[in-house]
Design a protein around this nucleic acid. Structure first.
Length: 496
RNA sequence: GCCCCCAUCGUCUAGUGGCCUAGGACACAGCCCUUUCAAGGCUGCGACAGGGAUUCGAAUUCCCUUGGGGGCACCA
């Protein structure tokens, strides 16, 4: 390590929105940095101008902030190792690439994309591994002059050893050895003057004094190239940790970036902002994500962010890829919702209701919160549970009023009985409602479930709703009475 | 095609040679509680991919097979 301080960077490329897989990497970066009392750095790797997507960056930063992964250095906060956008660091890459050319460790390549394409096609056809044939590695001065005269803008390639092996250590996977003959002279600097990932990240990790590199497993095969690059520069390599990929819930293949629609009609999200909009809690997301590829003791699974910082170690990261379990996420989100204080949950629910265009006020939601807290897996589900509180304009099939074993006359009797029981109530609170209704139910001689079932449909329009007594109290006496009358007349309509 | 990585219940995992008749969690099933639905409690179902080798003893070490994943760009 170049120094004693742990410095970890999250280095996303703004080619798409903030993805679940990136979020996991960012979380681990964050946790490593915080656990070892180091620095968490965000660096934007925007060296691909063709795939660049401007709104990816705000999406990313918002996502990080939402998850509570605050960074010490990077966009918007600056730092001593800036700039933190690679597009602002072009001179560095050019300088270092030139240095290697001067030292004979890299060379200019004038091959056209067409030639390279044809070469690859040939190699594939011949069953050979595709790779650059080093055509320009041994050019004479005349040939170079000839190409230059044509005005061709060259790329710069690293001249790698054609024999021997390259070896390195991955923190999780141990010692890895690769034949150099399998590697090719890869591009460091593109013809537009922008660096490739290989050059840019090596230079930046060095200049920013990064101590640990956490990145996806898909980088493992190109790690030897990076080793060779570090060696060409004469630099020591940071500790590398190649994280297991996150698999699709089916366990087949990488988590796709496209939204998938599950058989039950729900969407399978992959972007962080989708989870946010769907009413997932950031603390649940963090907890869940931490466990995708990491475990503490195999027993404990609820961790606050601070506990994660305390417990997280690189040793706990697993080597094998893991399939995403949306059920587990929902379970965990529900658990976090249940553990929220009523005030806290109320605030979050109020936001959701308001967002969805409901005329909700804190007081009403506050009374609703305990009634639905144990029933919702996401904040947004609250809407389906209690929408009838905020509007009288809902419809239902009057046939639902008639409970199992009941008929129209009996149902009408129950509705009238409820009116009779509730009308005289002074305080329309839960205990009063419960007492009145239970007494009336007993007097009618019907089962409580049957009686309340009819009232539930009448007052909420649903067969499944939060506990009735509390719900009625929130709806309010006058509205309850009018809903009961409305049910009665709907029942009358059924009779004809 | 070539290269790399991985391999315990359906899924996420604990396990680092004897404590394992393999532990926990999600999901699933049953029961209890109960005004519906949840939540909660209890119980159940359920795995060391296969074959060799090392060892007194292997889920744990080594090899092979198989399976899965990833990579082979002037993309990251």
């Amino acid at each position: 390590m170049p120094n004693q301080t742990v410095r970890v960077r999250f280095a996303p490329s703004p080619t798409g929105y903030f993805h679940l897989g990136s979020a996991r990497t960012a979380l681990y970066d964050f946790l490593v940095a915080r656990h070892y009392n180091g620095r968490f750095i965000v660096r934007i790797e925007d060296t691909d101008r063709t795939r660049y997507q401007p709104d990816a960056i705000p999406d990313l930063l918002e996502g990080l902030r939402w998850l509570g992964l605050w960074w010490d250095e990077g966009p918007e906060v600056g730092g001593d190792y800036g700039p933190y956008y690679q597009s602002d660091r072009l001179p560095f890459y050019q300088e270092y690439a030139e240095k290697l050319v001067r030292e004979g460790k890299a060379y200019r390549c004038y091959c056209s994309p067409e030639r390279l394409e044809a070469l690859r096609a040939e190699q594939r056809a011949a069953g050979l591994p595709p790779g650059y044939d080093r055509h320009c590695r041994y050019l004479t001065q005349q040939e170079i002059a000839h190409y230059e005269a044509q005005g061709i803008r060259p790329v710069i390639r690293l001249a790698i050893p054609t024999e021997g092996v390259t070896e390195f250590d991955d923190f999780l996977r141990g010692h890895i050895v690769v034949e150099n003959s399998l590697l090719d002279d890869f591009v460091l600097l593109k013809s537009d003057g922008f660096p490739t990932y290989h050059l840019a990240h090596v230079v930046d990790d060095r200049l920013m004094e990064i101590s640990h590199v956490l990145r996806g497993d898909e980088w493992l095969p190109s790690a030897p190239r990076h080793v060779l690059l570090y060696r060409a520069f004469g630099w020591e390599m940071p500790i590398h940790v190649h994280l297991p990929v996150i698999l699709d819930p089916s366990g087949k293949g990488k988590l796709s970036k496209r939204k998938k629609v599950l058989p039950d009609g729900r969407e399978q999200f992959t972007y962080i902002h989708d989870f946010r909009r769907a009413g997932y809690l950031p603390e649940a997301m963090v907890n869940f994500l931490a466990l995708v590829g990491w475990s503490y003791d195999g027993q404990t699974e609820f961790f606050s962010r601070d506990q994660l910082i305390r417990c997280f170690t690189l040793e706990g990261i697993s080597k094998s890829p893991s399939a995403l379990s949306y059920e587990k996420l929902e379970y965990m989100n529900a658990a976090y919702i249940r553990n929220l204080g009523v005030n806290d949950l109320t605030g979050r629910l109020l936001w959701v209701f308001t967002q969805q265009g409901f005329q909700a006020d804190f007081d009403t939601v506050f009374r609703l919160t305990p009634l639905i807290r144990e029933r919702i897996k996401t904040l947004n589900e609250a809407i389906q549970w209690v929408d009838f509180v905020f509007t009288d304009d809902f419809t239902y099939d009057p046939a639902l009023l008639i409970q199992k074993g009941m008929d129209i006359p009996m149902t009408a009797t129950m509705l009238r009985a409820a009116l009779e029981a509730l009308e005289p109530l002074e305080a329309f609170d839960e205990p009063a409602i419960e007492a009145a209704l239970r007494e009336m139910g007993a007097r009618l001689g019907v089962k409580t479930g049957t009686f309340l079932g009819t009232l539930r449909v009448a007052c909420t329009g649903k067969q499944v709703a939060p506990p009735l007594f509390g719900t009625l109290s929130v709806i309010g006496k006058q509205r309850v009475l009018s809903r009961l009358r409305r049910a009665l007349s709907a029942l009358g309509g059924l009779a004809q």
